[in-house]
Amino acid sequence: MFMEDRFDWEKFPEDQVRRFGNLKPSSIIIGIFILIIAIIILSSSFYTVNTDEAGVIKTFGAFSRITGPGIHTKWPWPIQTVEKVSVEKVNRIEIGFRTVGKDSAGNIIYSDIPEEKTMVTKDENIVEVEFIVQYIVRDPSAYLFNVDNPVETIRKTSWSAMRTVIASNTVDDVLTIGKEAIQNQTKDLIQSVLDRYNCGIRVVAVQLQDVDPPAQVKSAFDEVQKAKEKMDQLVNEGKRYYNQVVLEAQGEAYKIVKEAEAYKIQKINLAKGEVSRFEEVYRQYVKEKNIAKKQIYLDRMRSILAGINKYIVDPSVNLNIFLQQEKTEVIK
């Protein structure tokens, strides 16, 4: 009994083939179809959002919700679909040129877009402007649903903003000293327009790549720029020389003024000293007129006879004295 009920593994494949062979072809097709539908439903019900992305869920094509990084579930296709948008990646749009690839040496190849890069300045000069716009997506739902083609919208807005800013600057500003200001003005103008469109975009930077006059007149522009640079150099040299001479003159004038002030103080002090001395002599004169007169006489003679040879003659004693500086000689 036990031996008869034992399962025969050797006959199992044949039994299964015989059993499925008895199925109708339509039943097999329906089973396969149901299996495929089940696989599609299961595979479309789960999705993964990376750490730098946001998942935008659409229900029958309309916005439903936004999901963050991780594994999520949703209603299967075609009820719901998910579109992943990078919210941290800095995207780049090229205007006036396009990157088309690399050559055999690995150098990047660019292609010019003349209709985009030709612009007119405030003083009616033509310049060719190539620039890039960097942006990130800050609102995925607005980015996907508020405009039909976000990238093309950003490109056209950026091109229009740059033309507006270039038209408000002279060719000298565009080619030389005004590039940073032009970049900042264009960035602000692009952002204000995109905000009005509610595109969900934040402009990170606008960078000018090449700003040149047209090739037909580039040599003439280069000569003009060289002449301006030479003029600026001469002007700066003149200013340096002027400042040097002025500073030296100011220093000399300051020195003369200080010397004059010192001389004035010296003379004033000498005059005060003379006045004090005179007042002292006068006080002595008032007290003793004869003594004062004799003292004045002696002081005056001392100043007159200082430094000269002198003879002293005394006839009463027949004596002559010769006085010479640092030497005395008696002559009889």
Rank of each mutant, 00 (worst) to 15 (best):
M1N: 12
E4P: 00
D5W: 11
K11L: 11
G21Q: 06
I36W: 02
I41T: 14
S44H: 02
S45N: 06
D52A: 06
E53S: 06
G55C: 09
I57S: 09
I66C: 04
P69Y: 05
G70N: 04
I71L: 08
I71H: 04
K74C: 08
W75P: 00
W77Y: 15
E83A: 09
K84T: 13
V85T: 04
R92D: 14
I93N: 11
T99C: 02
S104R: 10
A105T: 01
I113S: 08
E115F: 01
K117W: 08
M119Q: 07
V120E: 08
I126C: 01
E130R: 05
F131D: 03
V137F: 02
R138M: 07
R138F: 06
P140I: 00
P140H: 01
Y143K: 02
V151A: 14
E152K: 04
E152M: 05
T153I: 00
I154H: 08
M162K: 02
M162Q: 04
R163Q: 14
S168L: 11
V171Q: 06
V174M: 06
V174R: 01
L175T: 06
K179R: 13
A181L: 13
A181D: 14
Q183A: 10
S192Q: 05
L194T: 08
Y197M: 13
C199K: 00
V203C: 08
V204T: 05
Q207A: 13
L208R: 12
V211S: 09
E223T: 10
Q225R: 10
Q225T: 05
A227V: 00
K230S: 10
L234M: 07
N236R: 11
Y242H: 13
Y242Q: 13
Y242G: 12
N243K: 13
Q244S: 15
Q244I: 09
E248V: 01
Q250W: 02
G251E: 07
A253W: 06
A253M: 13
A260T: 06
L270A: 12
K272C: 02
E280R: 14
E280K: 12
V281Y: 05
Y282K: 10
K287N: 14
I291Q: 14
K293N: 10
Q295M: 12
I296K: 01
Y297E: 15
L298G: 04
D299Y: 03
R302C: 03
A306E: 15
K310E: 15
N318P: 01
I321L: 15
F322S: 06
L323S: 14
V330H: 10
I331P: 02
K332M: 13
